[in-house]
Simulated assay, not measured.
Amino acid sequence: MKLLRIGAPGEEIPAVLGEDGRVFALSELTGDIDGAFLASGGTDRVREALAAGRLPELDPAGLRIGAPVARPGKVVCVGLNYRDHAEETGAPVPSRPVVFMKDPATVVGPYDQVLIPRDSVKTDWEVELAVVIGRQARYLADPAEAAGHIAGFAISNDVSEREFQLEFSGQWDLGKSCETFNPLGPWLVTPDEVGDPQALGLRLAVNGELCQNGDTKNMIFEVSYLVHYLSQYMVLNPGDVINTGTPAGVALGLPGTPYLRAGDTVELSIDGLGSQRQTFVNA
């Protein structure tokens, strides 16, 4: 099942994409797709209502698609989680997950413009598999428990400003939390439809040129392990987002490759999760 939110920023309508491509409004079931909806079994209610034909059809033509989850409490990111990406950046392959936080306010729609920060010279791209938490995860005993705490998956662009990230501070936050730096969506796809999260191809192109072409099977730390690991150090709440890392092919790791400039377009896709497209403009 594919959940989405349609409408202008702050005015999104929760919806579901049917198997036949039609879109149905969820307004009778919930005010939004958020942590409270996910924690209360919202996806099961949607599935039942959709199967029973109780949902009104919605015409999405010409309407903006927002991030599929409203107001995530936190965005937790895992760095250097693909061996080829660690190697291309000259970083050692980590023995434990590299964890950092990203301002949740960076989350925008999958087709929204992304703002290049003022004085930026190294704005970079990162296609990532995002995990959305559906049930609170706290001190999970084993990675096998993780599946029961995942609401679904989405495409994430973990946009990064490398000078801010690596040269201006001992931590990565400055280069990760600039406004609009986390396009998410277009859909939140439930685990039953995704299947094995470690068997998904990821791709990203800049101005039509393929830069990243990876596969989640090459993650150093798999999704289930990451959810388990993070739950030992923080409480993961419904609606929280985990960005699970990016494969090789970012500008940082490709000498001579230009960083993003105003007018550039970035297109991302992950098997079964749809696609994104952003145009970058100056802030």
Score class of each variant (00 low, 15 high):
98 V>A: 07
119 D>F: 08
172 W>N: 08
199 A>G: 08
36 A>C: 11
37 F>A: 07
172 W>F: 14
137 A>D: 12
133 I>V: 15
165 Q>Y: 01
92 P>W: 09
78 V>W: 01
186 P>M: 01
119 D>S: 15
77 C>S: 11
69 V>W: 04
169 S>R: 12
91 A>L: 14
13 I>N: 01
19 E>H: 07
247 P>L: 03
184 L>F: 13
233 Y>A: 06
62 G>W: 07
281 V>T: 13
3 L>T: 10
83 R>I: 02
170 G>I: 08
246 T>C: 09
77 C>W: 04
51 A>S: 11
131 V>L: 11
221 F>M: 11
192 D>P: 11
157 N>D: 10
84 D>N: 13
245 G>R: 01
141 A>R: 04
86 A>K: 02
4 L>M: 09
195 G>F: 02
209 E>H: 14
48 E>V: 12
111 Y>P: 09
11 E>V: 14
145 E>C: 05
181 F>V: 06
19 E>S: 15
19 E>N: 13
125 W>K: 05
104 P>H: 09
1 M>G: 12
97 P>D: 00
32 D>E: 09
245 G>M: 07
98 V>W: 03
275 S>M: 03
187 W>S: 06
137 A>F: 06
94 P>V: 00
138 R>A: 15
282 N>D: 09
161 E>P: 00
71 R>S: 09
34 D>Q: 07
191 P>A: 02
91 A>E: 11
245 G>Q: 00
114 V>M: 09
65 I>Q: 06
111 Y>D: 05
93 V>E: 07
40 S>T: 15
14 P>Y: 01
55 L>T: 02
24 F>I: 06
164 F>E: 01
31 G>C: 10
17 L>G: 08
165 Q>P: 11
51 A>C: 11
28 E>I: 10
237 N>I: 02
100 F>L: 12
133 I>S: 02
142 D>I: 05
99 V>I: 08
135 R>F: 04
89 T>K: 15
196 D>P: 02
218 N>E: 04
40 S>Q: 09
265 T>N: 06
142 D>V: 06
